[in-house]
Simulated assay, not measured.
Amino acid sequence: MDRERPHDRNARFQGRRIYLTGAASGIGLATARLLAEGGAALALVDLDHAGLERAAAETGGRPFVADLRDGAAIDGSVAAAAAALGGLDGVINCAGVGHGARLETLEPAEWERVLAVNLSAPYRVCRAALPWLQGQADASIVNVASGMALLPTGPGVSAYAASKGGLISFTKALAAELAPQIRANVVCPGLASTPMTAGLLQGHSSGDPPPPFLAQYALKRAADATEVAQAIAFLSSREASYITGVVLAADGGRTFH
């Protein structure tokens, strides 16, 4: 590959085959749209069958329904995706679940559910995809963690922050272990307008004074999902060919200090 030649941004993912979890809505769907616009062939993975079908129709991706708490289902979806796309060049683990409970009310089953989806599933996806990523030019992994992993906001986020903090460390370890063949990076979003945060942002419009939780952000607003997706797409692209092991906070300036 000619590292010095600028790439056509309208075709920057041409020939790329990417496995993307959480693709039915929110940041995952926004990422799928950007990748599809750039010419990527996509394996779209989610538990939301109806949302996944809509995402596939919009982006031309192949839909794969999978429960990310089920390791066998993950292994099967990765193998099926690689077969459908003729291999894999990239993985994006965007799926995640949140939970708010103080330690005294945080049940073990809920702790295990959050870690299963947010940390164990990316491990299982990366492990299953490794045989296809190895030997591919510009192979990449992007895991989506959270600004909560860098700076928890307060009580009630211990399971979520722990799972996303573990994902950061896991990805850094991958970057060292899989180099120079495969790049691995992390994006840490701040609060974004997605179905997961709809209840928190309900009733707030752009002309209103920022609520207290948004006052912590230098930009004083939540992100549009596409703004976070741009960061994920960049780290998945050939434009980031000399970047691995980074933790990119796309969080409106909440954690920069």
Rank of each mutant, 00 (worst) to 15 (best):
D2E: 11
D2H: 13
R3E: 12
R5W: 04
H7V: 14
D8T: 03
N10R: 15
R12P: 00
F13D: 03
G15H: 03
Y19P: 00
Y19C: 06
T21R: 05
G22L: 02
A23M: 04
A23N: 01
G26K: 12
G28F: 00
A30Q: 06
A32N: 05
A40D: 05
L42C: 06
L44M: 05
L44V: 02
L47Q: 07
L47E: 06
D48Q: 09
H49G: 13
L52F: 10
A55G: 06
E58T: 09
G61L: 02
R62C: 00
A66N: 08
D67W: 08
R69M: 10
A72L: 08
A72T: 00
A81V: 01
A81D: 03
A84Q: 11
L88N: 07
A95V: 06
G98N: 13
G98C: 09
H99R: 14
H99P: 01
G100W: 12
R102H: 11
E107P: 03
P108Y: 10
A109Y: 09
W111N: 08
V114N: 00
V114H: 07
A116G: 08
A116T: 02
S120D: 07
A121F: 02
Y123I: 06
R124T: 02
A128Y: 05
A129V: 05
A129M: 06
L130N: 00
L133R: 08
Q134Y: 10
D138W: 14
A139P: 01
S140L: 09
V142D: 05
V142T: 07
N143T: 03
N143F: 05
V144S: 03
M148V: 12
A149L: 01
P152R: 13
T153S: 14
T153E: 14
G154T: 02
G154P: 05
G154Y: 05
G154D: 01
V157S: 15
S158Q: 09
A159C: 00
A159T: 04
Y160C: 04
S163K: 04
I168C: 12
T171S: 11
K172T: 05
A173W: 09
E177P: 01
E177M: 10
R183N: 01
A184R: 13
A184H: 06
N185A: 10
C188K: 10
S193T: 13
P195F: 07
A198I: 00
L201K: 13
H204C: 04
S205F: 09
S206E: 15
S206I: 15
D208Y: 15
D208R: 15
P209G: 07
P210Q: 05
P212C: 09
L214H: 07
Q216E: 14
A218P: 07
A218Y: 00
L219D: 04
K220C: 08
A222N: 15
A222C: 10
A222M: 09
T226N: 10
L235G: 07
S237W: 03
R238H: 14
E239W: 12
Y242R: 13
T244I: 09
T244V: 09
V246P: 04
V246S: 14
D251A: 09
G252S: 05
R254H: 11
